[in-house]
Nucleic acid binder design. Structure first.
Lengths: 339, 339
DNA sequence: TTCAGGACTCAAAGCGCTTCGGATAGAAGG
DNA sequence: CCTTCTATCCGAAGCGCTTTGAGTCCTGAA
């Protein structure tokens, strides 16, 4: 069933039917009802390809997911996507996701734009000096970055959490509890967020005249095994840490496993603070959560990011402001004074 | 830059340029080279909307992700998607994902089809008697289900693992080790895979004249907390289990946490077997993995599912067969004889 | 009665691509 | 030298929609 058929069925022109369905005012209320009813009855919906061609708008937003050699897909990504997807559905946008080898990433962005597949692009997990900013700035298509670059002079729109402050506060908390040797299980440090977290961690230490110890700082993909191995190895050091700071709750669970296995009691012998993205299958909720954590919902970030990007698309004039969210610091059962 | 501009730039007709770019034989090799070079130089790529309209093919595959009230997004989903996405990219398909409230699920499928957004649909996590099979069978669009329905008489294409067999073998293993009280932390039992797993678990028990004990069987969303709570509560029973069977490695990690917290030793005092989807951030790899597990890569399933669906789309005649994969049973450090 | 103006409706022109059905020119065959 | 291929290329139609610019038919004021 297409527009023409529907129109002739109703003895109306395609113009009127199109207008009736798209809510234009110059069509009789009664006519509109007839049209809408008939469309529903016959399961008519406008062909998206034709609509795209006629309007020049794709009503879709692109996500490029680079797959590195190690083939990891961050569970955080799923959660963010699900938040963004909620907003897209409500606003009538499709999400198109392109999973490509890391090396083809730039081409994937270029193709999306050249083929006019999307009206905007959402960019994930920026690197330190992320080439995608300059790449995408070269086109006139709106894009929004989840996270930031390190160069404030670049002009683009982003949403991020205050990673530095969060990890500074987390480290401060542990220092206040008397901990002096704090193991840091960071994310991969070529990523911007990890660099900022490290900066917060180091700043808190140096503010108390503690030199950051390279032996206590690690960075890697934030897996469970990484948390386990990291803690296990650091606990084997001559002067082992009494507390750990984890960059992801998944890593924190791994850390906890190593702590338990070593026969140490969480919150008594060893303290752990983690960042908590509120992943739905790794909940750290409850009145007194398991982990003391800096917390910020990644799903909420996804929702908001999508809203901001859609605003960028639909009101090109209006200056959409970037947003910096503060993470909550919630005290759980995983921290206590140094013994 | 569009076709017409590119064509006049080259002093060729749009016909020839289009054919050159699409690899039709009736164009001079030299001409083709000129065209391809010019297209690259000017960053030309055909407008996808126009192409869709002209060819009637969307070159896209749809995924509908229903968001239940509890708003959970399964990490397994991300992993599957990433596998499927790899295949899509190689084959030149887009993945379009629609995140909708559970109640709007059927409409989301209908809209995708009516608007001709996709050439095929990949359906996730079937329920017991999944209405989507009849819904989608009513259209002429190919679809593929990751998982199966319980009604063998329905004719559709699927890929699945042998959940029943996997859990039967896992249970058998524990029984062989002398365990008689085996706690079962299943996924939500309105889902098909969970029902099959339960059937395998029960079959193994009854084969040894052990009546399945409802107190030892739970089903819920497969979170870490569920594993923890489940084990904790079952360990508090008058006649507690000596082994546990978990439906997801996330749950298994939660189970392990409860075991450790109770001061029990994994593989000695308590055994755990889990299903392992090979999630990239929750690895259970290594020569002797942490968990004894029934293992099947969900990412590989995603890749294969995408291949099958694309075959369904591109060779409508050819009978594409459904596939049932067997899971590996790998022995780790989490199982041992009953004490 | 006339006519301006509002309320509806319509025909037709694209949007950018693919593809059908020729055209043209040189090569091959008679 | 004329016809028939073959290798290339082109014009134009059409995919299904939106939207511009024009009506047409009322209503109510003059």
């Amino acid at each position: 069933m297409n527009l023409k058929e529907l129109a002739s069925l109703l003895n109306l022109s395609t113009t009127t039917v199109s207008r009736a369905l798209n809510g234009y005012p110059e069509v009789n209320a009664e006519t509109r009802e007839r049209v809408v009813a008939a469309a529903r009855r016959h399961g008519y919906a406008p062909n998206q390809g034709a609509r795209r061609l006629a309007t020049g708008r794709a009503h879709a937003i692109g996500h490029v997911i680079p797959l590195a050699r190690h083939q990891m897909i961050n569970p955080i990504f799923a959660e963010f996507i699900s938040g963004a997807g909620e907003t897209y559905s409500i606003a009538g946008y499709d999400m198109i996701a392109s999973v490509v080898p890391e090396a083809d990433e730039a081409d994937a962005y270029r193709a999306m734009i050249a083929q006019r597949k999307v009206d905007g692009i959402l960019v994930h997990t920026p690197r330190l000096l992320d080439p995608r900013i300059d790449l995408l700035s070269g086109f006139s298509l709106p894009f929004l970055m989840h996270g930031r670059d390190s160069r404030p002079e670049r002009d683009y729109c982003w949403i991020d959490i205050n990673n530095r402050r969060a990890f500074l506060r987390a480290t401060d908390l542990l220092l206040d509890l008397g901990h002096r040797r704090i193991g840091f299980l960071n994310g991969m440090e070529h990523l911007n967020f990890a660099q900022r977290r490290r900066s917060g961690y180091c700043a808190a230490l140096t503010a108390r005249d503690i030199a950051p110890d390279p032996d206590l700082m690690r960075h890697a993909e934030m897996t469970e095994a990484y948390g386990y191995d990291g803690v296990r190895e650091m606990l084997g050091l001559p002067d082992p840490p009494t507390a750990f700071l984890a960059s992801s709750i998944i890593t924190a669970f791994g850390a906890l496993r190593a702590v338990s296995e070593a026969g140490l009691r969480l919150g008594a012998d060893i303290s752990i603070v983690t960042h908590d993205d509120e992943l739905s299958h790794m909940s750290n909720a409850g009145p007194v959560p398991l982990f003391t954590a800096t917390r910020s919902s990644i799903r909420a970030a996804g929702r908001r990011a999508a809203e901001m990007l859609i605003a960028l698309i639909e009101q090109p004039g209006a200056a959409t402001r970037s947003e910096l969210w503060e993470a909550d610091l919630t005290i759980g059962r995983s921290t206590g004074p140094r013994v």
